[in-house]
Design a protein around this nucleic acid. Structure first.
Lengths: 206, 206
DNA sequence: CGGTGCTTGTGAAATCGTTCACAATCTAGA
DNA sequence: TCTAGATTGTGAACGATTTCACAAGCACCG
């Protein structure tokens, strides 16, 4: 499988949403132009992005919504269930645990951890908050693939290293600390202050 | 002021964090190489980024942490206070309201809104949840600059349009809906499912 | 005061990503 | 079967961003 550019992956994820809407609306084909309009891009961009699948659009017609949906789901690895653990049962961790959209897309939260003894044992949605001391054992037992890191920034590196050692190869990091991890661990950051600062810059720049 | 490339702005934001640490640690100068190591980039990249300030590093020595911090803060518009409103007092909205890393950096949450009558009037940290029906009036009265949009995706467009009309020119959007807004409104997205899908892709690609 | 060791600033080259432009292909309709 | 209209697939041009490479500047030391 050819390597797909990072920005393309992000757009595929967007296209997928619109495709699902189109499919629900009973449309059996969709053109690059329509996808472009939904996703705020251009039809040429859409076609380039989709050219990773080889060519299976129909000239004069467009793409089969059903087939395209299936292809994108496969490329994104959404044709299977991923086990997700959340570390940190504070506000962000709890919010993630209750994020309904995730389960729908195959991201099953199988455990949530916290270091605070007062929180350990409490129920959160259909989970019980586990003690972070058992992190490694639980991660292995539950075959967790992805971790959501929602701990204070000063603990992020330590917890991330433990997760990596326990076999987690993908981390969604809500902390603002830079993480040093083995090559094979993919990290994506949700850095709220950073995004606000980008907005601040945009506002200030005039 | 020259226009600064988007990726550069993001990195400046990162540099700023390390600079603050270095300054606290009593370091009066820092080299591009040190900043690069902290920020996971290269020294050439750092110097290119900083070249937007003209040249005020000292060859053989590096940059004055104090001056560089001040410059970056100014570029990012962090030398002032921004008024932030949060729309949606669900889990994500509440998490943002309680995120005190924000106040530290000059982002003052001045109001939080919700549409649910059961939530309106409740206390949340030092705020009282306001009725989203008063959104426009409150945004104007409080001189809100930035909005955090944490409402269900199907309501995002409607609320965003109201915010824009009330004068908000920067939105941090946690929904997954595509927003159509006037040119002069800057939007940054925090799309959790999208980031998880990028991780899923990375895991699946082998 | 000249040499050595660092480190900046910056053109130029390389890489990466987007947009353009058009031939090729398909459907529908006459 | 032929034509008109729509849309894909893709090489090539373009634009943006990163990396390279090195001259120039500064501090320290003998």
């Amino acid at each position: 499988m050819k390597k797909i550019a990072e920005p393309t992956v992000r757009r595929l994820s967007l296209y997928l949403r619109f495709l699902e809407d189109f499919e629900k609306a009973g449309r059996s084909t969709i053109s690059s132009g329509e996808l472009a309009r939904s996703g705020g891009t251009t039809s040429a961009q859409v076609r380039k992005d989709l050219s990773f699948f080889g060519s299976f659009g129909k000239r004069g017609i467009g793409y089969s919504t059903h087939d395209l949906t299936a292809h994108i789901r496969e490329i994104l690895g959404l044709d299977r269930v991923w086990h997700v653990v959340i570390v940190g049962a504070g506000r962000i961790g709890s919010a993630m645990a209750g994020y309904y959209g995730l389960r729908e897309r195959g991201f099953h939260v199988v455990a949530i951890f916290d270091a605070d003894p007062r929180r350990v044992g409490q129920a959160l949605d259909d989970l019980t908050i586990a003690d972070v001391r058992h992190l490694e054992a639980d991660v292995r037992r539950l075959h967790a693939h992805i971790a959501v890191l929602a701990v204070p920034s000063d603990q992020a590196q330590g917890v991330a290293a433990r997760l990596a050692k326990a076999g987690v190869r993908a981390i969604l990091d809500f902390s603002t600390a830079p993480l040093t991890l083995p090559e094979h661990v993919t990290v994506r950051r949700m850095n709220v202050p950073l995004e606000l600062e980008a907005l601040s810059h945009a506002l200030a720049a005039r």
